[in-house]
Computed example of a mutant assay.
Amino acid sequence: MVLVKHLPPDGAVQRQIHGESAEWSITDHLLAATVDHLAVSNWMFQCVNTGEDDETPDPPKPVPRPGITDEDGEERGDDSEEEAAGPAVSSSALARFFG
């Protein structure tokens, strides 16, 4: 058991036990979260700076994470990242918030 416990985290045994998520390190997860937060920030900036007559842009989709799928069976981002994007917000509500 000691030998199995100390096998490399990206080895074949870990991939067999944990599936595709064994291929992602903590750095990969942090980088995906950073990209998601930057995309949400850019989306909010775009929503605030569009005119009232312009159509509100669609919120960004999170970076797909291993082992997480949406209701259509396609891979999607982490639940916490999806909550960060939240529901579509009007540009006037964002403008009031950022005043």
Rank of each mutant, 00 (worst) to 15 (best):
M1G: 12
V4E: 08
K5Y: 13
K5C: 13
K5V: 13
H6T: 15
L7G: 04
L7R: 04
P8Y: 08
P8S: 10
P8H: 09
A12E: 10
Q14V: 00
Q14S: 01
Q16V: 06
Q16A: 15
Q16S: 12
I17N: 09
H18S: 09
S21C: 15
A22K: 03
A22E: 03
W24V: 01
S25T: 14
S25D: 11
S25N: 01
T27M: 11
D28F: 02
D28N: 13
D28R: 00
D28V: 00
D28G: 05
H29P: 01
L30S: 08
L31E: 12
A32R: 10
D36S: 01
D36L: 03
A39V: 07
A39I: 05
V40D: 02
V40T: 12
S41E: 08
S41P: 00
S41I: 04
N42Y: 09
N42R: 02
N42I: 02
W43E: 04
M44P: 02
M44A: 15
M44R: 15
Q46R: 09
V48P: 07
V48D: 05
N49P: 01
E52V: 14
E52T: 14
D53V: 09
E55G: 03
T56N: 07
D58L: 11
P59Q: 08
P60H: 11
P60W: 06
P60V: 05
K61N: 14
K61C: 11
P62G: 14
P62L: 03
V63Y: 02
V63M: 03
V63E: 06
P64F: 03
P64W: 01
P64I: 02
R65K: 09
R65F: 04
R65Q: 11
P66G: 06
G67H: 10
D70I: 05
E71R: 05
E71A: 10
D72F: 10
D72T: 14
G73N: 04
E74Y: 12
E75V: 07
R76D: 12
G77Y: 03
D79P: 10
S80L: 07
E81L: 04
E81S: 14
E81H: 08
E81M: 04
E82D: 13
E82P: 03
E82F: 11
E82Q: 13
E83D: 15
E83H: 12
E83Q: 13
A84D: 10
A85M: 09
G86P: 00
A88F: 06
A88H: 12
V89G: 01
V89M: 13
V89I: 14
S90M: 04
S90E: 01
S91E: 03
S91G: 15
S91C: 10
A93D: 14
L94P: 01
R96L: 06
F97K: 14
F98A: 14
G99A: 13
